[in-house]
């Protein structure tokens, strides 16, 4: 089921974005972005997981299936994982997710991204969400047929 290339709807399109945040770094980073009142688009919703290594590829697929136009997985920086190396597994799994599933489904690889955001990077979190939202907005809605 390749992704449809329908550019017509792009104009007033607001993407829906699902963000997986690990409990220790990225979620705290998102919180910091909030309390510091950094602005970012309201298109995303956060699902908190204990560790980025908990994010099963099936969650990503489920999110895309349930209507998300983009999925962002965030975790602690490599070497800073609260659970020592959960983020390394996340990275490994993410690469497999891309190499095998996302490509085979014909979904644009840019729609699913893995990023590291630490608890002190509120600014970065806001910038990342802004940038990702704009990128997905540019790609248009995700459609399956």
């Amino acid at each position: 089921m390749p992704e449809a290339k329908n550019k017509a709807v792009k104009q007033d399109f607001e993407p829906d974005i699902l963000v997986f945040c690990c409990n220790w770094c990225s979620y705290a980073g998102a919180d910091l972005a909030g309390v510091s009142r950094f602005q970012y688009p309201p298109n995303m919703r956060i699902v908190r997981v204990m560790c980025s290594g908990r994010v099963d590829p099936s969650f990503v697929l489920k999110a895309l299936k349930e209507g998300a136009d983009g999925v962002l997985i965030t975790g602690c920086h490599i070497g800073d994982c609260h659970y020592i190396s959960g983020n390394e597994y996340a990275k490994e799994r993410f690469e497999k997710l891309h190499r095998i599933i996302i490509k085979q489904l014909g979904i644009n690889e840019k729609r699913v991204r893995l990023e590291w955001v630490s608890a002190s990077e509120g600014r970065r979190f806001a910038d990342l969400i802004t940038e990702f939202t704009n990128e997905i907005r540019g790609l248009g809605p995700l459609k399956f047929y």
Partner: peptide
């Protein structure tokens, strides 16, 4: 949670019509 966000929270129900997820 993901399903809930997808169907209610983000208000994508209008768009759902053009999305035929399998």
């Amino acid at each position: 949670e993901i399903k809930g966000i997808g169907t209610g929270e983000l208000d994508i129900s209008q768009k759902k019509s053009i999305k035929i997820a399998n």
